[in-house]
Amino acid sequence: MDQDEQHADDVDAALQAADVMMRVAARSVSEVEDIVTSPQLRVLVMIATRGPQTLGGVAAELGVHASNATRTCEKLVRLGLVERTEDPDDRRFVRVGLTAEGSSLVQRVIGHRRSALADVLAVMEPAERDAAVASFRAFASAAGDLPSADGRFTLLLPGAAAGL
Score class of each variant (00 low, 15 high):
residue 114 R to V: 14
residue 139 F to K: 00
residue 114 R to M: 10
residue 81 L to Q: 04
residue 140 A to F: 05
residue 44 L to S: 01
residue 137 R to Y: 02
residue 57 G to V: 08
residue 128 E to P: 00
residue 132 A to I: 03
residue 154 T to A: 12
residue 103 S to E: 13
residue 110 I to Y: 04
residue 118 A to G: 05
residue 115 S to Q: 11
residue 73 C to A: 14
residue 88 P to M: 03
residue 107 Q to E: 14
residue 76 L to M: 05
residue 96 V to H: 10
residue 51 G to I: 00
residue 97 G to S: 14
residue 96 V to N: 11
residue 100 A to M: 13
residue 96 V to A: 09
residue 121 L to M: 08
residue 128 E to G: 08
residue 151 G to M: 06
residue 129 R to M: 02
residue 115 S to V: 07
residue 95 R to Q: 14
residue 46 M to I: 00
residue 104 S to N: 15
residue 113 R to I: 04
residue 57 G to Y: 01
residue 110 I to Q: 02
residue 45 V to M: 12
residue 127 A to I: 12
residue 114 R to E: 10
residue 74 E to P: 03
residue 62 L to F: 02
residue 125 E to P: 00
residue 131 A to I: 09
residue 124 M to K: 01
residue 116 A to V: 02
residue 59 A to F: 02
residue 66 A to P: 06
residue 152 R to A: 15
residue 89 D to F: 13
residue 145 D to Q: 02
residue 74 E to G: 14
residue 93 F to N: 14
residue 76 L to H: 03
residue 113 R to W: 01
residue 57 G to Q: 14
residue 100 A to E: 14
residue 80 G to R: 00
residue 147 P to R: 09
residue 65 H to T: 11
residue 73 C to F: 04
residue 131 A to Y: 07
residue 60 A to P: 01
residue 123 V to S: 09
residue 47 I to H: 05
residue 50 R to N: 15
residue 146 L to K: 08
residue 93 F to G: 10
residue 153 F to H: 07
residue 58 V to M: 03
residue 54 T to Y: 01
residue 82 V to E: 01
residue 78 R to G: 09
residue 66 A to K: 10
residue 110 I to D: 00
residue 125 E to G: 07
residue 148 S to C: 08
residue 144 G to L: 01
residue 142 A to T: 00
residue 153 F to M: 03
residue 77 V to Q: 03
residue 137 R to D: 11
residue 82 V to M: 06
residue 81 L to M: 12
residue 133 V to A: 05
residue 50 R to P: 11
residue 122 A to N: 12
residue 105 L to I: 06
residue 54 T to L: 05
residue 126 P to A: 08
residue 98 L to K: 11
residue 102 G to D: 02
residue 69 A to T: 06
residue 114 R to D: 07
residue 90 D to A: 10
residue 121 L to A: 13
residue 100 A to T: 13
residue 107 Q to N: 14
residue 153 F to T: 09
residue 144 G to N: 03
residue 45 V to W: 02
residue 56 G to H: 09
residue 110 I to L: 09
residue 146 L to A: 10
residue 56 G to T: 09
residue 83 E to D: 12
residue 58 V to E: 03
residue 121 L to H: 07
residue 134 A to C: 04
residue 135 S to H: 11
residue 70 T to H: 15
residue 104 S to H: 15
residue 127 A to Q: 13
residue 155 L to Y: 10
residue 133 V to P: 01
residue 102 G to T: 01
residue 72 T to C: 05
residue 119 D to K: 05
residue 70 T to D: 12
residue 98 L to H: 12
residue 91 R to V: 12
residue 89 D to W: 10
residue 44 L to A: 04
residue 125 E to L: 10
residue 69 A to P: 04
residue 113 R to P: 06
residue 109 V to A: 04
residue 130 D to V: 11
residue 107 Q to F: 06
residue 46 M to G: 14
residue 135 S to V: 04
residue 131 A to W: 08
residue 62 L to D: 09
residue 131 A to P: 00
residue 147 P to W: 00
residue 45 V to A: 07
residue 65 H to W: 07
